[in-house]
Protein backbone atom coordinates (compact mmCIF):
# COMPACT_ATOMS: atom_id res chain seq x y z
CA UNK A 1 0.00 0.00 0.00
CA UNK A 2 1.11 3.54 -0.83
CA UNK A 3 2.51 5.57 2.05
CA UNK A 4 0.44 8.67 2.81
CA UNK A 5 2.06 12.05 2.26
CA UNK A 6 3.03 13.24 5.71
CA UNK A 7 2.48 16.47 7.53
CA UNK A 8 5.56 18.43 8.50
CA UNK A 9 6.76 17.67 11.97
CA UNK A 10 5.43 20.17 14.49
CA UNK A 11 8.08 22.70 15.50
CA UNK A 12 7.80 22.34 19.26
CA UNK A 13 10.28 25.17 19.85
CA UNK A 14 7.64 27.70 18.80
CA UNK A 15 4.83 26.11 20.81
CA UNK A 16 4.72 26.38 24.59
CA UNK A 17 6.25 23.43 26.43
CA UNK A 18 3.84 21.49 28.66
CA UNK A 19 5.48 22.52 31.92
CA UNK A 20 5.42 26.32 32.36
CA UNK A 21 5.40 27.04 36.10
CA UNK A 22 4.61 30.76 35.65
CA UNK A 23 1.22 29.48 34.53
CA UNK A 24 0.48 27.55 37.70
CA UNK A 25 -2.20 25.17 36.46
CA UNK A 26 0.30 23.66 34.03
CA UNK A 27 2.43 22.31 36.89
CA UNK A 28 0.15 19.37 37.77
CA UNK A 29 -1.30 19.00 34.26
CA UNK A 30 1.89 18.51 32.26
CA UNK A 31 3.34 15.12 31.35
CA UNK A 32 6.83 14.51 32.68
CA UNK A 33 7.71 11.80 30.17
CA UNK A 34 8.82 12.61 26.63
CA UNK A 35 6.19 12.48 23.90
CA UNK A 36 6.51 9.44 21.65
CA UNK A 37 6.98 10.58 18.04
CA UNK A 38 4.79 8.86 15.46
CA UNK A 39 5.15 8.78 11.73
CA UNK A 40 1.86 9.55 10.01
CA UNK A 41 -0.61 6.78 9.17
CA UNK A 42 -4.23 6.93 8.04
CA UNK A 43 -5.13 7.71 11.67
CA UNK A 44 -3.15 10.95 11.53
CA UNK A 45 -3.65 12.27 8.00
CA UNK A 46 -7.44 12.07 8.15
CA UNK A 47 -9.78 14.22 10.19
CA UNK A 48 -13.40 15.27 10.50
CA UNK A 49 -15.10 17.37 7.86
CA UNK A 50 -17.98 19.74 8.35
CA UNK A 51 -20.56 21.21 6.03
CA UNK A 52 -23.12 23.95 5.89
CA UNK A 53 -25.70 21.53 7.30
CA UNK A 54 -23.75 21.52 10.56
CA UNK A 55 -23.94 25.23 11.28
CA UNK A 56 -26.27 28.14 10.57
CA UNK A 57 -25.45 31.25 8.54
CA UNK A 58 -25.76 33.63 11.52
CA UNK A 59 -23.51 31.59 13.78
CA UNK A 60 -20.54 33.86 12.99
CA UNK A 61 -22.30 37.05 14.13
CA UNK A 62 -21.87 37.40 17.89
CA UNK A 63 -23.52 40.82 17.77
CA UNK A 64 -26.82 39.22 16.83
CA UNK A 65 -26.62 35.48 17.66
CA UNK A 66 -27.65 35.93 21.29
CA UNK A 67 -29.23 39.39 21.24
CA UNK A 68 -32.88 40.01 22.00
CA UNK A 69 -34.85 41.32 19.00
CA UNK A 70 -33.92 44.94 18.28
CA UNK A 71 -31.08 44.98 20.82
CA UNK A 72 -27.35 44.39 20.63
CA UNK A 73 -24.47 43.84 23.04
CA UNK A 74 -22.59 46.75 24.61
CA UNK A 75 -18.98 47.18 23.56
CA UNK A 76 -16.62 48.06 20.76
CA UNK A 77 -18.06 46.57 17.58
CA UNK A 78 -15.37 44.71 15.68
CA UNK A 79 -14.89 42.41 12.72
CA UNK A 80 -12.36 39.66 13.22
CA UNK A 81 -11.32 38.24 9.90
CA UNK A 82 -8.48 36.42 8.21
CA UNK A 83 -7.47 33.30 6.36
CA UNK A 84 -6.64 29.77 7.41
CA UNK A 85 -3.48 28.71 5.56
CA UNK A 86 -1.03 25.88 5.88
CA UNK A 87 2.73 26.21 6.19
CA UNK A 88 2.97 25.99 2.39
CA UNK A 89 0.74 29.12 2.26
CA UNK A 90 -2.10 27.12 0.69
CA UNK A 91 -5.57 28.14 1.85
CA UNK A 92 -7.63 25.59 3.79
CA UNK A 93 -11.15 25.74 2.38
CA UNK A 94 -14.35 24.66 4.17
CA UNK A 95 -12.68 24.17 7.50
CA UNK A 96 -14.47 24.83 10.78
CA UNK A 97 -13.37 27.83 12.85
CA UNK A 98 -14.94 28.23 16.30
CA UNK A 99 -14.40 31.15 18.69
CA UNK A 100 -15.38 32.03 22.24
CA UNK A 101 -14.73 35.08 24.38
CA UNK A 102 -15.70 37.24 27.34
CA UNK A 103 -17.98 40.26 26.93
CA UNK A 104 -16.78 43.89 26.80
CA UNK A 105 -16.36 43.87 30.59
CA UNK A 106 -14.28 40.70 30.72
CA UNK A 107 -17.11 38.46 31.97
CA UNK A 108 -17.80 35.05 30.46
CA UNK A 109 -21.26 33.61 30.15
CA UNK A 110 -20.25 30.47 32.00
CA UNK A 111 -21.63 29.06 35.22
CA UNK A 112 -18.09 28.80 36.59
CA UNK A 113 -17.20 32.48 36.02
CA UNK A 114 -17.91 34.52 39.16
CA UNK A 115 -16.11 37.77 38.22
CA UNK A 116 -18.10 40.77 39.50
CA UNK A 117 -18.33 42.47 36.08
CA UNK A 118 -21.87 41.84 34.84
CA UNK A 119 -23.16 39.49 32.16
CA UNK A 120 -24.40 41.27 29.04
CA UNK A 121 -27.99 40.06 28.43
CA UNK A 122 -27.45 40.41 24.67
CA UNK A 123 -24.14 38.61 24.40
CA UNK A 124 -23.49 34.87 24.39
CA UNK A 125 -19.83 34.90 23.43
CA UNK A 126 -19.43 32.09 20.94
CA UNK A 127 -19.43 31.82 17.18
CA UNK A 128 -18.46 29.44 14.42
CA UNK A 129 -18.05 29.48 10.67
CA UNK A 130 -16.61 27.54 7.74
CA UNK A 131 -13.83 29.07 5.68
CA UNK A 132 -14.71 29.75 2.05
CA UNK A 133 -12.87 28.30 -0.96
CA UNK A 134 -9.99 30.73 -0.34
CA UNK A 135 -9.65 29.82 3.31
CA UNK A 136 -11.27 33.10 4.32
CA UNK A 137 -13.41 33.57 7.44
CA UNK A 138 -14.94 36.45 9.38
CA UNK A 139 -16.81 37.08 12.61
CA UNK A 140 -18.67 40.12 13.92
CA UNK A 141 -18.41 40.60 17.64
CA UNK A 142 -17.53 43.07 20.39
CA UNK A 143 -13.98 43.45 21.58
CA UNK A 144 -13.59 41.46 24.80
CA UNK A 145 -12.37 43.09 28.00
CA UNK A 146 -9.38 42.08 30.10
CA UNK A 147 -10.19 40.01 33.17
CA UNK A 148 -8.49 38.95 36.38
CA UNK A 149 -7.67 35.34 37.14
CA UNK A 150 -6.35 33.40 40.09
CA UNK A 151 -2.77 32.70 39.19
CA UNK A 152 -0.68 35.20 41.06
CA UNK A 153 -2.74 37.66 43.11
CA UNK A 154 -2.77 40.39 40.50
CA UNK A 155 -2.76 38.67 37.09
CA UNK A 156 -4.95 39.98 34.28
CA UNK A 157 -5.51 38.30 30.94
CA UNK A 158 -5.10 40.58 27.93
CA UNK A 159 -8.21 40.99 25.79
CA UNK A 160 -8.37 37.79 23.80
CA UNK A 161 -10.60 35.59 21.69
CA UNK A 162 -10.16 31.82 21.89
CA UNK A 163 -9.89 30.22 18.45
CA UNK A 164 -10.35 26.56 17.53
CA UNK A 165 -9.49 25.28 14.02
CA UNK A 166 -9.60 21.85 12.39
CA UNK A 167 -7.82 21.82 9.01
CA UNK A 168 -7.98 18.69 6.87
CA UNK A 169 -6.24 16.23 9.21
CA UNK A 170 -6.51 15.46 12.90
CA UNK A 171 -2.80 16.37 13.27
CA UNK A 172 -3.61 19.93 12.20
CA UNK A 173 -6.07 20.38 15.07
CA UNK A 174 -5.28 23.57 16.95
CA UNK A 175 -6.67 25.71 19.73
CA UNK A 176 -5.09 29.09 20.32
CA UNK A 177 -5.88 32.62 21.46
CA UNK A 178 -6.03 35.81 19.41
CA UNK A 179 -4.77 38.99 21.09
CA UNK A 180 -5.11 42.61 19.96
CA UNK A 181 -2.42 44.94 18.66
CA UNK A 182 -0.95 47.31 21.21
CA UNK A 183 -2.38 45.69 24.36
CA UNK A 184 0.11 46.37 27.20
CA UNK A 185 -1.06 43.24 29.08
CA UNK A 186 0.34 40.92 26.37
CA UNK A 187 4.01 41.00 27.47
CA UNK A 188 3.15 40.45 31.15
CA UNK A 189 0.64 37.63 30.76
CA UNK A 190 1.91 34.27 32.10
CA UNK A 191 -0.19 32.36 29.55
CA UNK A 192 1.11 34.37 26.58
CA UNK A 193 4.61 33.99 27.97
CA UNK A 194 4.37 30.19 27.97
CA UNK A 195 5.37 30.64 24.31
CA UNK A 196 9.16 30.77 24.17
CA UNK A 197 9.43 32.35 20.73
CA UNK A 198 8.73 36.13 20.46
CA UNK A 199 7.90 35.82 16.75
CA UNK A 200 5.35 33.12 17.54
CA UNK A 201 3.72 35.45 20.09
CA UNK A 202 3.65 38.24 17.51
CA UNK A 203 1.78 35.88 15.18
CA UNK A 204 -1.04 35.64 17.78
CA UNK A 205 -1.61 39.40 17.80
CA UNK A 206 -4.40 40.51 15.46
CA UNK A 207 -3.60 43.74 13.65
CA UNK A 208 -5.90 46.70 13.29
CA UNK A 209 -7.16 46.53 9.70
CA UNK A 210 -8.54 49.84 8.50
CA UNK A 211 -9.12 48.45 5.02
CA UNK A 212 -11.70 46.01 6.34
CA UNK A 213 -13.26 48.46 8.78
CA UNK A 214 -16.84 49.42 7.98
CA UNK A 215 -17.05 53.21 8.32
CA UNK A 216 -19.48 54.41 11.01
CA UNK A 217 -20.18 50.78 12.00
CA UNK A 218 -17.36 48.42 13.02
CA UNK A 219 -13.60 48.50 13.32
CA UNK A 220 -11.70 45.47 11.98
CA UNK A 221 -8.82 43.26 13.06
CA UNK A 222 -7.02 40.78 10.84
CA UNK A 223 -5.94 37.39 12.19
CA UNK A 224 -4.47 34.79 9.84
CA UNK A 225 -4.11 31.27 11.17
CA UNK A 226 -1.40 28.89 9.95
CA UNK A 227 -1.85 25.15 10.34
CA UNK A 228 0.71 22.46 9.65
CA UNK A 229 1.79 21.96 6.06
CA UNK A 230 2.03 18.76 4.13
CA UNK A 231 4.87 17.18 2.25
CA UNK A 232 4.54 16.50 -1.45
CA UNK A 233 4.93 12.91 -2.51
CA UNK A 234 7.19 12.97 -5.52
CA UNK A 235 6.32 11.09 -8.70
CA UNK A 236 2.75 10.47 -7.66
CA UNK A 237 -0.42 12.10 -8.85
CA UNK A 238 -2.41 13.10 -5.83
CA UNK A 239 -5.90 14.43 -5.64
CA UNK A 240 -5.30 16.34 -2.44
CA UNK A 241 -2.50 18.13 -0.67
CA UNK A 242 -0.49 18.80 -3.79
Amino acid sequence: MRQPAEYYQRDRTLHPPAYTPGYKTSVARSPRQALISLENTASEITGPRFGHGDIDPGDNDLISNYARPGESPIGERIILHGRVLDENARPLPRTLVEIWQANAGGRYRHRKDTYLAPIDPNFGGCGRTLTDENGYFFFRTVKPGAYPWRNMVNNWRPAHIHVSVFGAAFVQRLITQCYFEGDPLIPICPIVQTIPDPQAIEQLVAKLDLNATIPLDSIAYKFDIVLRGRRSTLFENRLEGN
Partner: peptide, 9 residues
Amino acid sequence: YLRETASQT
Protein backbone atom coordinates in the same frame (compact mmCIF):
# COMPACT_ATOMS: atom_id res chain seq x y z
CA TYR B 1 7.36 28.50 4.46
CA LEU B 2 4.94 30.01 6.91
CA ARG B 3 5.23 29.04 10.55
CA GLU B 4 2.45 27.25 12.34
CA THR B 5 0.34 29.39 14.65
CA ALA B 6 1.39 28.72 18.24
CA SER B 7 -0.97 26.84 20.53
CA GLN B 8 -2.48 28.31 23.69
CA THR B 9 -4.44 26.61 26.43
